[in-house]
Design a protein around this nucleic acid. Structure first.
Lengths: 190, 190
DNA sequence: GTCCCAACCAAACAATTGCTTGGTAGGCTA
DNA sequence: TAGCCTACCAAGCAATTGTTTGGTTGGGAC
């Protein structure tokens, strides 16, 4: 792995754990075994680091969403795939997901990170499309408030990044199974 | 309202909106129409401000949890009440909830805020008790992973603070209704 | 053997941070 | 009128912040 990518990975870990503002360039440097000034040989600012971390992650993620949308599965299968895809992302890119979850609001106030709001809108489009299709096809109950259900699913899925740790008791597919069961059929006794 | 409480409310708003570390004492002072040094007439540190904000909120919240636990409603009613209670808190103390959601992890690393972890454990106890009771009484499905269901509910409910705004289209009771419908019966067509 | 270049160091910079100090304005009480 | 108290100001301090600058090192290319 190129040194540059190593440093980005280290920075991502710190940003995810302590927050962006709360992580100093000296923290990143120390964790990397170098001095803070040396970071500026690789990157031109601390902001550039998060920027790069977030964009490359999102490019990858949204490509997968597009795949699901474009497929000719039935509505329910698409929703299931979209949910599983998110837990997979949490499993494989948990630092990036955490940063996006925790810092998007703050970073979004800068022009440079305007794309965060766009991606947010894009993700909303995906889900509203899937849910609308689900209701129309009869796969989902017709009394759902689509907008609210979208927020419910979005929050519910991504917030798992706060406690999920790969390699522990639960695999990400097991978590996705349980979440989908609850989401689709509820927790009440049938 | 005493000046001191006014300042605390202003600080809470800023902490919730921009984060604790990201809010300077000068921000708080400016929003209050005074100079930063003058804040130290009322409080002895910035940390004391969050501390006071969080403890008073949590004291109030957990007193209500205890009421639910102590009541002799059936299991399902208790769960419903506990959920509604949370949305009520989001409605009435959204700054405090937001601060707790966003900063608990970071603040928890300081000795002074060790009580945050205790409160977290306490909240877990409440929910595990309710869910266990629910499964045993037959109100909830017996194939639930209790621990995971607890996290699901906890996250799902509190994360709504990110988008819910009082006085908008949806009342907090309407949101609670929808959330409970999804949580209990799922989104799939019956 | 010279050159180059990526990776780093050492030291400093200005700005911003939380916080301290000594003082003052004005209202209430005796 | 004197004393006191709450709420504030004005000015500054030391520490920490992101960033810059000029120089050094070690390995590979020619």
């Amino acid at each position: 792995m190129p040194r540059r990518d190593e440093l980005l990975a280290i920075a991502a870990g710190l940003f995810a754990e302590k927050g962006f503002k709360n992580t100093t360039v000296r923290d990143i440097a120390e964790a990397s075994g170098i001095l803070s000034g040396s970071l500026y040989h690789h990157f031109d600012s601390k902001e550039s680091m998060v920027d790069e971390i977030l964009t490359s992650f999102q490019d990858e993620l949204f490509a997968k969403y597009d795949e699901v949308l474009a497929s000719d599965d039935d509505a329910r299968s698409k929703i299931e795939r979209a949910v599983r895809l998110s837990f997979e992302a949490i499993d494989q890119h948990r630092h990036e997901v955490a940063i996006f979850q925790n810092e998007a609001d703050y970073l979004g106030t800068f022009d440079r990170f305007a794309y965060l709001a766009e991606r947010n809108a894009q993700s909303r489009d995906v889900w509203i499309t899937l849910l609308t299709e689900g209701v129309r096809s009869g796969a989902l109950r017709s009394d759902l408030d689509i907008e609210l259900t979208y927020r419910f699913i979005r929050d519910t899925v991504w917030v798992a990044v706060r406690w999920y740790r790969p390699g522990k008791k639960l695999t990400h597919t097991a978590v996705a199974d349980q979440y989908l069961t609850i989401l689709l059929d509820g927790i009440a006794h049938a």
